[in-house]
Every structure is written in C-alpha cells, then in structure tokens.
Computed example of a mutant assay.
Amino acid sequence: MRNISKLYLYLTLLLVNLCWVMPAQSERVADLYSASWPVENQSTGVRQNAMQNVFAEVLVRVSGNKAVVNNSQIQAVLSDAQNYMRQYSYKRLSAEEQMVYERPLLLVATFDSQAIHRILKEAQQPIWSENRPAGSFWIAVEEDGQRRVVSESRDQVAIAIKRAAARRGLPIVMPLMDLEDKSEVSVGDVWGRFTGPIKRASERYNADYVVAGQLSQSGGQWMGRWSLDLGGNVENISSTASSKQQVVADLIDQIADKLAARLSVVLSDQVLAVEIFVENINTLDAYAGARRYLDGLGMTQSVRVLQVKDSAVLFEVKVQSSPQSLIDAINIGNNLRRIPTDQGLGGRYSFRWRD
C-alpha cells in the first residue's frame, strides 16, 4: 500500500508539473500594486496631484527602496501616473482614522503590475516580490503614566503602525491581547523587550519575524526603541520625532529597509538554474505549498520538478539573480527550513518543509 501511495504521488506530481508552466505565482501581499493618499475632497485637481504621490508610493513598495523616487528615470514617469493607473476609488475615513491621516478621505489607486516591473527594471532598480515575510508587532505605549500593549483595534498607534506597514507593503499582525496572549506575555515583557515570552506568544500568529518595543513621550518629543528578531538575529532600532505617528513611520521604514536589503533583487537578463531539495513532502498540499512558495519569490522565473523520492521532491528553480539571493529569500521565511548539514554543494540546496 505504501509503494502504491508513493507511485500515486509521483504520477500526480508529474502530471501537475507538466501542466504547470505558468509564470511565477504565489501567495501575495494584498494589493501590492495599490496605494492610497489622504485627500480633502474628490475634485479633479486634488486627485491629479495626489495620484503622483500614490504612484510614487507603489514604486517604493514594489522596489523596497525609499530612494527609488530620486532616480532620474523614475522621476521622468511620475508625472505620467494616470497612464499606468488601472482604477481608483475613494474611502471615507472614520473619526479615529482622520486623527491619524488628517484628512476625511483616502484616494485609493491601482496600477498595472507589468508596467511597474518594466519601469523598475529599465531604471535598474530592485524588485521585491509579493511573497513577503509576515511580522508580529508587540509595542508597549506609555501615555499619561499608564502603559498598555497596542492590540488589533482602532487605537491610534495601531492605525499608525498599519498605515506605515501598508505604505511599505509589509504584512503584519497585531496581538489580540486576549486571555491567551495575556497568559503568555505581560506589558512589562513587551516594554523590556524580553524575547523569550514574546516569541512564545507569537507562535499562534505564525510570524516570520517578531518586533517588540516601546513608545513613550518626554519633553514634547516621542521616542521609540524597538527590537527586530529575524531568525534569531536581533537588531535594535530607535527613532525620535515630534509625533508618535512620525516615530512609527520611521521605525517601520527601518524594518522595511532591512528586509528589502535581503530580499529585493535587481533582475538580470541571465537566467540560472538552482536545485532545491525539499524533504517532508508527504501530501499534495505540502507539494503545492512548497511550489507556490518558490514560485512567488521575486527572482524566480520558473519552477519544475526534477525528481520525487519517498517524501522528498527535487525542484529546479530558474532565477534572474544569484543563487545566494534565492537562498537568502528562502531562509527569511518560516515555510522552508534549511537542513543544518547542507553545504549547497554542486548547486543543490536542501530544505525541510514545515508541517
């Protein structure tokens, strides 16, 4: 029976492999090619001015590079934002959101993804794929002598964090701070950035990295001290500004910059083949998940199966970057875990699919 199951899996994977010749697709950051800008009204003049800002924001999100708008080739196309727009709409903001955005409406616009990629590639700018690591954010705020952990709510700090993360295309999750969270982590743990309890509490959110920190006010200035835990490597970041929204935006920018530095790539015209050996592929769902994950990486041109043996699959991944850029992109997520003994000999790298 076991051999029959293996044969069934093998034949099924071969059939899927033969049929699956589409371009790279994977789980994506929602609306990566859409962005928004706060506006006072829906007049044509206001919309046209705001559209350039929305277009610039999309270029920053997709490239992962804040300085992309300083590139001369990029600046030349910003005024043509309307030519690349596919659709736009308006969203009326709640009272809490208006306190953060300082306007009653958001102009939301979506741009053509292929045109965005072409613009960035012609300007030799990096591209960061839609398949991005998700982070759990544990932030303690001190106001009026009281400390609290920002949760998934309409709290102004939560809105500011979500706005800044959306601006950079970062998928994030805020803790619920329900009984389960409170039993694992305290306000003091978050304020002190004690990684042990915070990482344990983050397991339920299936995050690829964890951010913990504090936000406080002193002498009219807001200060944030955060820690980014990415695969066990902890980096401390800080910022000071006149408003908590500015501090949050700057700290999110720093996190996005660090992630993009590892994951965004300037696509090459040269295509290289890299072999990725994946263990623990016991079901078709696991196979589909591993393939989607590899397909969704920004440097991936195509993926195909070379071999199926027992519960392992050998993929050939063709990339428009260096093999190391591919491995770095895989390592930053939680879906595929590098096998400790793997040395990447002969251009083959070994991973284990997470259950």
Results as ranks from 00 to 15, higher is better:
Ala134His: 09
Gln246Asp: 14
Asp189Glu: 01
Arg86Gly: 12
Ser311Gln: 15
Asn280Lys: 08
Asp208Met: 04
Ile119Pro: 03
Gly231Gln: 01
Asp253Arg: 11
Thr12Ser: 13
Val266Ile: 15
Asp112Ile: 07
Ala256His: 09
Tyr8Ile: 15
Ala67Leu: 11
Glu130Arg: 05
Arg132Ile: 01
Ser216His: 10
Leu105Gln: 03
Val305Leu: 10
Val319Gln: 02
Ala164Pro: 06
Ser302Arg: 09
Phe111Leu: 08
Val46Gln: 13
Met99Asp: 13
Pro104Thr: 04
Ser242Leu: 12
Ile198Trp: 10
Ser72Gln: 14
Val62Asn: 01
Ser153Tyr: 11
Tyr10Lys: 12
Leu336Pro: 01
Asp328Gly: 02
Gly224Gln: 04
Asp229Leu: 10
Asn83Leu: 15
Val187Glu: 14
Asp295Lys: 11
Phe194Arg: 10
Ala273Val: 01
Ser129Pro: 04
Val29Ala: 08
Gly188Arg: 12
Ala24Gly: 14
Gln270Gly: 03
Val141Gln: 11
Gln125His: 06
Ile255Val: 15
Val69Cys: 04
Arg292Cys: 00
Pro133Phe: 01
Val29Thr: 12
Val210Asn: 05
Phe351Pro: 00
Val68Arg: 05
Ala329Ser: 14
Ala241His: 09
Gly188Tyr: 11
Asp178Met: 11
Asn331Pro: 00
Thr44Tyr: 14
Tyr293Val: 08
Glu143Ser: 02
Ala165Pro: 05
Ser216Asp: 08
Ile119Tyr: 07
Val210His: 07
Ser79Gly: 10
Asp285Glu: 14
Thr12Trp: 13
Ser129Asp: 11
Leu294Val: 06
Lys199Leu: 12
Leu170Pro: 01
Met177Pro: 07
Lys6Phe: 14
Gln217Glu: 15
Tyr33Lys: 09
Tyr101Pro: 08
Asp189Tyr: 03
Val141Tyr: 05
Ser151Tyr: 07
Val308Gly: 00
Gln301Thr: 06
Val54Lys: 03
Leu306Val: 09
Pro104Phe: 05
Pro126Tyr: 07
Val274Ile: 13
Ile281Tyr: 09
Leu7Phe: 12
Phe315Gly: 01
Met22Glu: 14
